[in-house]
Every structure is written in structure tokens, then in C-alpha cells.
Design a protein around this nucleic acid. Structure first.
Lengths: 143, 143
DNA sequence: TATTGTTATACTCTATAACTATA
DNA sequence: TATAGTTATAGAGTATAACAATA
């Protein structure tokens, strides 16, 4: 059994861990949990989406999502609006939420920008190429 | 402000999400939580380590770690042993835990192997090269 | 005094299943 | 009947700070 792929997975996971550790610290300092920020970042720069869509993008199951959205609504970050199909709810950032997004998102990802300061455009191109290939492979072979 | 790095981060995160979704499902089916499996995988093929080390590797803070270890100990997966410095505890897999690791680890990562079935040795080399470069960059510029 | 790990607290996330209202 | 989202429940992870034992 060829285990070479394990090295790639481990590297992938280590990169993600490094990035998440830094961003999680920022997010926490801003008064959000990782799940809450995940929602905010997903809703940012969109016209909003249904709970179903939001759950699929963030991997948060619907039962859990209600609670996370409740807390974000209590903070005035998001709002729920009935859709045409009256079973659906459209979730979107409030004006205040949009403001928070514009304010906090760059702060959270700014560490990332600094981290990549040594990358050239060519470096990015090669990295993106490999990650896209990886993503396609994983998409078509997992689940 | 150059935002090109955001694309790389997003791709990285999407790859990780795909992989974690699949592995989380397996782990859950085996009766473990992600944190618990993280501990098991970290302790597997080692002689054990202190809580401090284990916490650093898994990013689980010490207060939380005690609870996770309690539940793994109750399941007979891990054991705590006093070290030479009697403030420290060495955490290691029990014989049963080692058995569970040998049994479950391949099952969890097997999806990964399948996912990479189309990768050639050259593909792996290039991917690993890019991920190592990324890891080095993130390591030296974050935190 | 500093370090290692535990305890205590309060909150958040999680899975799951039953439920309501729409369709 | 099927779908979208909520509610209910029990368990698990989380941050934080105070604590005990040891160094």
C-alpha cells in the first residue's frame, strides 16, 4: 500500500493549522467564535443566501446553524428575511454586520498577507496550480 | 493592497474542508470525536508525550485537554504515567489504544489514498515541494 | 517564583431527532 | 409527501482563571 499521499495530507494539514492558529487568535480578539466568523466571511460581499446554502458552504448542520445565527442576530450582525418560498429564510449581513465584515476581515487575513510577503507572482501561480489540481482530485474522489 | 494570497488561502481551506469532511465522517462512525482522533493519531507510533507537548501539537489548550484525555482514558484508549519530573504526565496509547489506532487510522486515511489514485510520483513531488515552501513561509511569518 | 496539569465555570458547538410551516 | 428551518436534548469542546503539587 502506497502511503506517499499521507505526506501531502500532513503538509496540507500543517499549513492549515498554522494559518488557523493565527486567524483564530484574531477572530477571538474581535469577539467572535470561529464558526461565527466563518458565517460572516461567507456572507460578506454576497446578497445573502438561504440557511441551506450557508450550511453547505460552512459545513455547519442546520440544527447547529440556528444557534450560531441566533447569536449573530443578537449581536446585530445578521438578519433573517422570508423568501418567496415561505419555507426559506434569506440570511444576510445587516448594515452593521457589513461594516464589521469590512473592518474585521482585512484584519484577520492581514497576517496572511504578511506571511506571503516573500511570494512572487510566479510563486503564487505555481502554488495555485497545484492546489487547484488537488482540489479537483479531492472533489471528484471524496464523497 | 495585493490580495492575491487570498486565493491561495481559499484554495488551501477548500482542500482541507474536502478532506476533513470525509475523515470526520469516518471518525464519527468509529465512535470518536475529531479532537479524540486527533489525539490518537498524534500519539500513534510514538512512545508517548507530555500533556504540554500533546497540547502544542494538537492546538488543544491544557484546560480542554484534561477533559478530552479523561474521555479517552475512560474508553481505555490512553493512560497517564507520572514522569521523572513529577509535575509532568506522560500520555501514551494503551495496548488497546494502539490496536484501535492500527485499526482505525488506515480506515480514516484510506479515503485519502483513493482520492490520490490518479497522482503520479512526479505529481506528489511537485505538490510536496509547494506545500513545504508554503509551510516554511507560514512558519516564519505567522506568530 | 515558575511550571505542569487539574478543577470550576460559563458558553458555544455538535449530532440527532422530533416538530412546525410551508410546498 | 417532501422540504426549510426551529426546537429540544444530551454530550463535547472552548476559553479563562483559580488552584495544587512539584521544581
Amino acid at each position: 500500500m502506497d502511503k506517499r499521499y499521507l505526506r501531502s495530507i500532513r503538509l496540507l494539514s500543517e499549513c492549515m493549522q498554522l494559518f488557523e492558529k493565527a486567524s483564530s487568535k484574531r477572530v477571538r480578539a474581535l469577539g467572535f467564535t470561529d464558526s461565527q466568523f466563518d458565517i460572516i466571511a461567507t456572507l460578506g460581499n454576497t446578497a445573502g443566501m438561504t440557511c441551506k446554502e450557508l450550511g453547505e458552504k460552512t459545513l455547519i448542520t442546520k440544527g447547529t446553524l440556528t444557534g450560531v445565527l441566533d447569536r449573530l442576530e443578537a449581536k446585530g450582525i445578521i438578519q433573517r428575511e422570508r423568501g418567496a418560498d415561505r419555507r426559506q429564510l434569506f440570511i444576510k449581513l445587516t448594515e452593521f454586520g457589513e461594516h464589521q465584515f469590512q473592518l474585521s476581515f482585512p484584519e484577520v487575513v492581514n497576517d496572511g498577507r504578511r506571511a506571503f510577503s516573500a511570494y512572487t507572482q510566479t510563486d503564487f501561480t505555481i502554488l495555485e496550480e497545484q492546489l487547484m489540481k488537488l482540489k479537483d482530485t479531492l472533489s471528484s474522489h471524496l464523497d
